[in-house]
Simulated scan of single mutants.
Amino acid sequence: MNDQPESVNRTRTSVELFAGGGGLAMAVHEAGFRPLLFNEFNKRACQTLVASARKTLGTDGLVEIEDIRPKPPAVGQPAPLYPADVQDLDLTAFEGQVDVLAGGPPCQPFSAGGVAKGDEDKRNMFPAMFKAIRQVRPKAVICENVRGLLRPSFADYFQYIVNELRLPHQQRVDSTRWQDHDADRRRSQATRPHHHSYPPAR
C-alpha cells in the first residue's frame, strides 16, 4: 500500500465497529478515509486505540463516550470511541454521512480453534453489523472474519450473511429465525422483476 501524502484531502469518511487494536482502522485511514466513530468492547483494546490514535489513526485523539446515540464529529474534531456493547449503539445520526462501514465481528463462533457454535453462539455479532448497515446506509461495507466461517457446517449461515449484505434493509424480526427470514427474502426476490443481471462473484 502506498503511503498517502500528508496533504491528502480526507473528504471520505468511515465508521469502525469491533475495532480491536485498530489494525483494519489503520488500513482504512491509510486509504484516505476520515474516521467518524470507533466501537470496541474490550477494555485493553480501547486503551490501545486511545494511546495510538494520533500516530496510527491520524486523529488528534479519541474521546470515549457513553452516549448510545452519538453524532458525527465536525472536521478537525476527535473521533468518538464507544467502549461498550455494539448492540446498544444507535447510529441513526450517521445515516448518509458514511462512505465505508468497516468491522470484524468476533470470530470465536466460527473459529476452528473454538467450540464452533456458529449462529447459536451469543458472541455472534453479525446481526449487530446488519443493524448498523441499516442505520448508517454506507456506500460500502468491509466485513472480515476467520476462514473457519467458510467450513461446510456454516455454509448456509455464510450464504445468509452474503444475502444480508446484499439486501440489508429487509429487517429481520427478533422472534424470527434467520433461516425463515432468509427463505422469505428469497421468495420475495424470486417474485420481483429483474432489470439487471450480474455475474456471480469469483
Rank of each mutant, 00 (worst) to 15 (best):
F110W: 06
F154W: 05
N42Q: 10
S52C: 14
V115Y: 04
S153L: 12
T11W: 13
V75G: 02
T11F: 13
P105E: 04
D156Q: 14
A112C: 06
E164I: 01
F126W: 07
R186D: 01
R10I: 01
F158P: 05
S111C: 06
G20W: 02
G23A: 14
A201F: 12
Q159V: 00
Q108H: 08
N9W: 02
V162A: 02
Y198C: 01
N2D: 11
P200D: 02
M26V: 14
S14D: 08
G22I: 13
A155C: 06
M129G: 05
L57P: 10
L57N: 12
Q135Y: 13
R185Q: 14
V136I: 15
G118I: 02
E120A: 09
G21W: 14
H194K: 04
P73M: 13
V63R: 06
E95S: 15
L36W: 06
E6N: 11
L165K: 06
G32A: 03
D182W: 14
K55Q: 07
E40K: 07
E16V: 02
E16W: 08
I133R: 00
S175I: 15
D119E: 08
H196Q: 01
L150R: 05
G113F: 00
M125V: 00
L167H: 13
V50Y: 13
D60R: 10
P152M: 12
L91S: 10
R123Y: 04
F126R: 07
T56L: 15
A183Q: 06
G22E: 11
D121C: 03
A112R: 12
L62M: 09
A112S: 10
T92H: 15
Q135D: 10
R202W: 12
V136G: 12
S153K: 13
L17D: 09
V15T: 09
L36M: 11
I68G: 05
T13A: 07
T56I: 09
R151P: 02
H169P: 10
V162F: 00
K55W: 05
Q87E: 15
A84R: 13
Y160M: 10
G103M: 09
A102T: 05
H195F: 04
A19F: 14
P138Y: 01
L37P: 04
F126A: 09
E95G: 15
Q179D: 13
K117A: 03
I133M: 00
I142Q: 01
A27P: 01
F110I: 05
R12W: 05
F41S: 02
D3P: 14
